[in-house]
């Protein structure tokens, strides 16, 4: 992260990062999982599409876009995964356990929208 080394940072002006290098979401951000249904390989389970949760952490380093990689295309496809927490009662109507129970999962940036 560009803020992690203040001594080095003081010697140079802040360089411009390429689009997609910087995480689009920060911990605490409310996010909505996209509910599209692409053809091919993807890693967002059906049961979470359309659900709203909160970003817990940004997974570093950025990873390849697995949907593109599934077709052998991976140049320039790096984005972040986010660890997102959902209340069980948001995921499952009628969840029988206590309201404090939660579910966590890593979701690729292209699947998240600001809620």
């Amino acid at each position: 992260m560009q803020d992690s080394h203040p001594a080095a940072q003081s010697l140079i002006s802040k360089p411009v990062w390429a689009l997609g290098e910087e995480p689009a979401f920060r911990p605490g951000a409310r996010v909505h999982v996209s509910s599209r249904s692409p053809i091919g390989h993807y890693r967002v389970p059906l049961y979470l599409r359309g659900k709203t949760g909160s970003v817990v952490s940004v997974i570093e380093p950025a990873g390849l876009n697995n949907e593109e990689e599934g077709f052998g295309r991976n140049a320039g496809g790096r984005r972040h995964y986010y660890r997102v927490g959902f209340e069980m009662s948001e995921v499952w109507a009628g969840y029988p356990g206590p309201v404090r129970d939660r579910l966590f999962i890593e979701v690729f940036e292209t699947w998240l929208e600001r809620a």
Partner: peptide, 28 residues
């Protein structure tokens, strides 16, 4: 969707005041 029932089948009964956190591993 019913982690507490699954845990109970393993003999692990989690008190209601304890938060159950299920992590679903799907990517890297």
């Amino acid at each position: 969707f019913e982690p507490r029932a699954v845990l109970a089948e393993f003999g692990t009964v989690i008190p209601a005041e304890v938060e159950v956190r299920v992590s679903d591993s799907t990517s890297m």
